[in-house]
Amino acid sequence: MVNSSLRTLRDLPGVDDLELKSLMKPRFADPDVPEGRDEIDALSIAIFGLALDEAESTVRPADWDGIETLAPADMAEAFEAEGWDVTDKRRKPLRLLPHLALPLALAMRGVAGELPFHAEPAQEKSDWGSSLAADAKRFTKR
């Protein structure tokens, strides 16, 4: 079960479209020789303001944990612990994850790039005011 307070990578603009492309054409997001490197790079720039090559050349802090080098399943767990759901609808790591993990990690930790704006979920209105009005109405009828 997915924690509803997690930010979801696949919900960011363009991610789901490229994920579908990589599903239809597995070489599109192949970690070794991706055919879609230019499109994935453009997506990374659009979302995080950080190109894939820029992310690779970014100097990481001394306490960097190397989250981007983990196996995809381990990466998904590590990102979830930091508040991000990086899985598809079937809870499998995204095919684009090996490419977007480093830019995401750098942005979420404030090292380089930036995270896209995320509005806080709307607060549910409580009904205490309406019950107060009903109580007052009953009181005045007495």
Score class of each variant (00 low, 15 high):
Trp64Leu: 02
Pro34Tyr: 00
Leu52Pro: 03
Leu43Asn: 03
Pro13Ser: 03
Asp85Val: 06
Asn3Trp: 10
Pro13Asp: 14
Pro31Trp: 04
Asp74Arg: 12
Trp128Met: 12
Lys125Glu: 14
Gly129Arg: 15
Val2Asn: 05
Val33Gly: 09
Arg10Gly: 09
Ala42Gln: 07
Ala71Ser: 09
Ala46Thr: 11
Glu35Gln: 07
Ala62Pro: 04
Glu124Thr: 09
Asp65Tyr: 05
Asp32Gln: 15
Leu106Tyr: 05
Leu104Glu: 06
Glu54Gly: 11
Pro61Ile: 11
Asp135His: 07
Arg27Phe: 12
Ile40Glu: 08
Pro98Cys: 00
Phe48Thr: 09
Arg37His: 13
Glu80Tyr: 07
Ala105Gly: 04
Pro72Glu: 08
Arg142Asp: 09
Phe28Trp: 06
Ser44Gly: 06
Glu114Met: 12
Ala101Pro: 02
Phe28Gly: 02
Gly113Phe: 11
Arg27Glu: 14
Val86Phe: 01
Gly83Ala: 01
Ala136Ile: 06
Leu23Met: 11
Ala76Met: 00
Leu23Asp: 15
Glu114Gln: 14
Phe48Leu: 09
Val15His: 02
Glu124Trp: 09
Phe139Lys: 08
Asp127Pro: 01
Glu68Ile: 14
Ser57Gln: 15
Ala122Trp: 09
Phe48Arg: 04
Leu50Ala: 02
Lys92Ala: 07
Gly49Cys: 02
Asp88Val: 03
Arg37Ala: 10
Ala81Phe: 05
Ile40Thr: 06
Thr140Lys: 13
Leu23Pro: 05
Ser57Ala: 15
Pro34Ala: 04
Ala29Glu: 11
Asp17Glu: 15
Glu120Phe: 10
Arg109Trp: 00
Asp74Gln: 15
Leu100Asp: 08
Glu114Ile: 06
Leu9Thr: 00
Glu19Ser: 08
